[in-house]
Every structure is written in C-alpha cells, then in structure tokens.
C-alpha cells in the first residue's frame, strides 16, 4: 500500500471514486465499472493500471481527464503553478471551463484513437496545443517538427491530413500532440500498441524523460517490456490495490 506522500509532491489524488453507466435506452441496464477506487500519483512517478480488459482501466483514465463524469468520490489533480501557489481541482465537481483550463495547461492524454479535423495537416495538429497556449505559429511548428522527426514520421507526411495514415503513424501523431507541451500530468492509454520496436523505444525514452522532469504519469500498457521499464507503481484492478514495484 502507498504511504502518505508529501502533499506538494502529489499530483493526482483519487479518493473513493465510483463510476457506473446507466443505459437508459437499453432497459435501464446499470454497469458498475469503478467501485471505491483510491490512488495517488507523485511527481516523477508512473502508475501503471493493470488488469484484464473490461475492468475499467480506460474508464479510470477518462475520469482523470474529465471526459467521463465521476459519480462519487473525488478526482483531484494538482494544478500548482510555478509561482508556488498550490491549487487543486476536483474533476468530479469542476465546471467545463475549469476542466478545459486544466487540460490546456496541466494534463495531456493520449487516447487509442486519433480524432482529427478533416483537412488539417499533421504539423498543425501537433502544434495546436502550443498555439492554444499563445506560442507563435512558427515556433510551435518548429517544436512540432522536432518531435515528429524524433518519432520518425517522414517529413513528406507533415503537410498532409492524417485521416488516411496507418494506425502506427496516427498513434505517433497522437503522442507528439500530447508530449509537445510538457504537461506536468500525462495519461497514456496504450501509447505503444501499434508501434514497431524502433518507435516503441522512442516513446519509452519520451516517457522516461518526462518522468525525470517530474511529470506524473498514469498509463495502460499491455506491452510488458514497456511496462517493466517505466512503471514505478501498479494499480491492480480486481483487488483494487496500489503497490510499488
């Protein structure tokens, strides 16, 4: 079990989280997915969500991003700024504006799917999170280019819309889109699932670099090699326990 961390070191603090889905148009079926989940993630740590499919790993990750509505308990994320002011936001109660603010400045999320606006070229998709923080177009593009190069996405693809790209190419765009900002919190849903060995290694490097800089990570990795390399903590679904590696 986890010890009580230094408050300033803790980035994610989930307490007694409950989540069920009520399917009103399918006979009112109620699916209980998360029951009394509590966990904490500290700066520079990587918590791996572990358990069989359908147990709610992705659901938990989506609750941490405010994409799914938590129904009970607290999902607190540390939004402290560099000027030393400590602020926490409970995503279970936050307004849309607050969640958008947290996402723009603090939380990155790599989903399993790339959802794109038709017609927008790769380079602009990847630089968009920086643009929304007020970074100039050229500088944002420059940083996007550096990251895309590192992820071995051929330059001839950068000006194209990725809707017809392969799964592995789309995934690398997703990863670049998420890692470009340097968010203090990262949520990764199978970021290496459709990558070859070479690119998988690049993503592991990116994750490790982020951790060295103090980023708190929660991830789902089915690839045991990746998992063993990056995990500092495990949350086991099924018995809902949290332990250190």
């Amino acid at each position: 079990m986890i010890s009580q961390p230094e408050a300033s070191n803790c980035m994610i603090h989930v307490e007694h989280l409950h989540k069920h889905f009520k399917l009103h148009n399918q006979g009112g079926t109620r699916l209980q997915v998360l029951e009394d989940i509590s966990l904490q993630v500290n700066k520079g740590n990587c918590l791996v969500l572990d358990g069989p499919s359908g147990k709610g790993k992705s659901t938990l990750l989506r609750c941490l991003y405010g994409n799914y509505l938590a129904q009970g308990g607290q999902v607190k994320v540390n939004l402290s700024r560099q000027d030393g002011i400590t602020e926490w936001l409970d995503l279970a109660k936050a307004s849309p504006r607050e969640i958008l603010y947290a996402r723009r400045h603090h939380i990155g999320y790599v989903s399993q799917f790339l959802r794109v606006i038709p017609r927008v070229p790769v380079i602009d998709i990847v630089s968009e999170p920086l643009r929304s923080l007020g970074v100039e177009r050229e500088e944002a593009r420059q940083r996007a280019a550096t990251l895309l190069e590192r992820l071995n996405l051929p330059e001839r693809l950068w000006q194209l819309s990725p809707s017809t790209f392969s799964g592995g190419e789309q995934q690398r765009i997703n990863i670049a889109h998420c890692f470009i900002v340097g968010y203090p919190i990262l949520l990764l849903d199978e970021p290496t699932a459709s990558l070859d060995t070479k690119n998988r290694a690049v993503v592991m490097e990116l994750i490790e670099e982020a951790m060295e800089q103090g980023t708190a990570i929660v991830g789902i990795f089915h690839d045991s090699e990746v998992r063993n390399q990056v995990a500092t903590d495990y949350f086991r679904f099924g018995n809902n326990t949290h332990d250190r590696t």
Binding site: L23, R62, N67, L69, P96, L100
Partner: peptide, 18 residues
C-alpha cells in the same frame, strides 16, 4: 449541459444517450 466531449462520450440523460 457540460463539457462537449463529456456530454458526447458519457451522456447522462436518456434523451442525450438516444
């Protein structure tokens, strides 16, 4: 009412779900 992706991915009201 709520955050767009939350309402679309996790709709609460029967009509929104429909």
């Amino acid at each position: 009412q709520g955050l767009t992706d939350q309402v679309l991915d996790d709709p609460q009201h029967p009509y929104t779900q429909l």
